[in-house]
């Protein structure tokens, strides 16, 4: 009972932090003075949540890889539940990153999408973790599912840096210029102190959001397991 009230207060705290971060990102933070048009200056305000979700999303995938590794070492299904919960949240966060990035890129780069190293890596990471979830969905037996997912999570996590290196190599030898403004440097700005504060509050808010979602998701997994056990018990008692 005590645990539940703790989660509840954490929910409230998360909501408050997100509202504060929203206020800071939309009102408190000054406009990026060097950006030429008003649309670009408004779009720049996406940056605070975009970066926060990107960093937290990366942490989520690190947790998935580590959870998988710990499952393989310890053989305890709890680690697998942690890895799974984290992957699901990470995929949602990564989707947020891609959508907010695209919304910002349209006014700033004049395109929704460009095959820049970061964008390419993020899209591949998205596919990897979508595949990770599909794989989990396609295996019935919990122990086998956990082993497969752990192995695949490990491979995915290790192939992401290699993908990044390969695309960087490609672009540095073969710079691609699709019209003006497709370079990653376009739309940069100086981070003033209030902007930095805003970024930090957003990062905190999103990190707490990740933790609270992870706790809820993990609890849901535990409950699912309980339900399975109860069902087994009932089915066997009727036989």
């Amino acid at each position: 009972m005590k645990k539940k009230s703790f989660l509840f207060w954490l929910d409230v705290l998360t909501a408050a932090l997100i509202l504060a971060a929203l206020y800071m990102a939309l009102v408190y933070a000054p406009e990026a003075a060097n950006l030429p048009t008003r649309t670009e200056r408004l779009a720049q305000r996406i940056f605070y949540f975009h970066v926060s979700f990107a960093w937290t999303g990366s942490v989520a995938f690190l947790v998935t890889a580590l959870g998988g590794l710990l499952y393989l070492i310890r053989d305890n299904l709890k680690w697998d539940m942690l890895a799974f919960s984290s992957a699901e949240i990470g995929l949602v966060f990564l989707s947020v990153v891609i959508v907010t990035g695209s919304l910002w890129a349209k006014p700033t780069w004049n395109t929704w999408w460009t095959w820049d190293p970061r964008l390419t890596t993020v899209s591949v990471a998205w596919l990897l973790y979508a595949a990770y979830l599909m794989l989990r969905n396609a295996v019935e037996d919990p122990a086998r599912r956990a082993r497969f997912a752990a192995v695949y999570g490990l491979f995915s996590f290790l192939s992401i840096p290699l993908t990044l290196i390969s695309i960087r190599l490609w672009r540095t030898i073969h710079p691609v210029i699709i019209g003006e403004g497709s370079q990653g440097a376009q739309g940069g700005f100086h981070l003033a102190p209030p902007m930095f504060q805003t970024l930090m509050v957003s990062l905190l808010a999103v990190t707490v959001l990740y933790v609270i979602l992870l706790l809820h998701r993990y609890q849901a997994e535990l409950l699912t397991e309980d339900v399975e056990e109860l069902r087994e018990k009932i089915l066997t008692s009727y036989q």
Binding site: V124, L127, L128, A131, M134, L135, A138, V139, E140, R144, F148, Y152, F155, S156, S159, L162, T163, I165, S166, I167, W170
Partner: peptide, 23 residues
């Protein structure tokens, strides 16, 4: 060892081997 194995193999394989294909 999964359901729908024919569908799953390319979905699992291609994102992981992307660095090989690019190189």
């Amino acid at each position: 060892n999964t359901r729908a194995r024919e569908v799953l193999l390319p979905v699992l394989l291609f994102p992981v081997v992307l660095p090989v294909l690019i190189a």
